[in-house]
Write a protein that binds this DNA or RNA. Sequence first.
DNA 1: GAATGTAATTATGAATTCATAATTAAGTCA
DNA 2: TGACTTAATTATGAATTCATAATTACATTC
Lengths: 223, 223
Amino acid sequence: MSLAETINRPTLHQELVDRIRNLVIEDKLKPGEKVPEKDLCEAFGVSRTPLREALKVLASEGFVVLQANRGARVTHVTRQELADTFPVIARLEQLAGELACVQLSDVDIAAIEARHAAMLAAYKAQDRPAYFQANQDIHQALIQGSQNKILQDHHKLLAARIQRARFMVNLSDDRWAEAIAEHETMMGHLRARDSAQLGQTMKTHIENKFAAFINGIDAEKGG
Amino acid sequence: MSLAETINRPTLHQELVDRIRNLVIEDKLKPGEKVPEKDLCEAFGVSRTPLREALKVLASEGFVVLQANRGARVTHVTRQELADTFPVIARLEQLAGELACVQLSDVDIAAIEARHAAMLAAYKAQDRPAYFQANQDIHQALIQGSQNKILQDHHKLLAARIQRARFMVNLSDDRWAEAIAEHETMMGHLRARDSAQLGQTMKTHIENKFAAFINGIDAEKGG
DNA sequence: GAATGTAATTATGAATTCATAATTAAGTCA
DNA sequence: TGACTTAATTATGAATTCATAATTACATTC
């Protein structure tokens, strides 16, 4: 352990970027909604300057759109954006899987194994929140395991942008079973350190997730 | 054609983001160098507010780093960043190739064919600037041809960030010949609309480009 | 009563101002 | 001479102010 934690006093705008991004991800600020500078300034107790700086950054990240003299609005997660994003995430996770297979230590893999077991337990118990958490932990561990900072940064941004769509549709029983099976396959490849196969399976896993997602949207719209 | 073009009057900060980013890409502002607000304000004839907004955005894009109370510095393009970025770009171009193969019209492909011919001519004439331009046009056309906005945005950002490293090493005769051969293969797959093969070749093409790049750096360092 | 034009209000883009952290320069003592 | 203090200067983060674009409310005309 190091002697002291690095002093972490972010500037106001850095803090605000994170806070407001979370408001968007958590659906507290809803798509299409105007982001009123005045109200947020009061809510956060800051002046307009750092808040406006934060909005510029969030705009470059794609969470809001700015219109000159008309302020910021939360962006919609369109079906087209989802259709464009999932394939890119799939390729990033494929690459992450290939790299993680080589980079991860046996201890790291054991930790993932534990989360995998927790995920299976959550499935058996039909505990969706626990499943989602374990599932995300596993994917996150593999992304981190890639040791590739660029990959991590871009994945994080894309994941955050589409996470808002998670309310659009529920996980079906069929898809849940399928996802569990895919994770079993992934785990097998990771144990065998078969990087090409792990990558391929992760790519397909994300592609299938997207397909199920689209099916879910259409089903709800039709029903 | 629509009745009218959308009015495009960018705000100062949007203009400044582009201008300063270009200064960094064109190596006018060099890695490690401090970005003095005062001087840039005078140079661009704007106040500090929009300039500082622009710096926040450029920081989120990775072109500068901000240190609280110590301002902005241009980021270094480290070898690690190159090593992390090329594989990601390779996967993005692979995906782009697969999609473009399906999406591009015959007319689009004919246009790429023309740029390909221009590239070959530049090679025969040993005209490096003309080669680089035609080469970039071809890759750009394929990225655009993917019709995937997310892919395009992320590719653009990554390409811009590493473009600054182009001065680090020269294109060797061997690598040039190899690159030409790879482009011939790509063109063949595009003509045949073999998306998997085009994607695979584009991925390998970028990976080889990176390998040559690293060799070039090591050679210059050793010599 | 709907449509158009005008005034009042509000919100936003940008400049300026202010407080303070960093940096530099000057001074002091061993 | 050189390390350490301390004062002066500079640069930066953030608040405030200002000018103007957008919006709303209201009036007027047909």
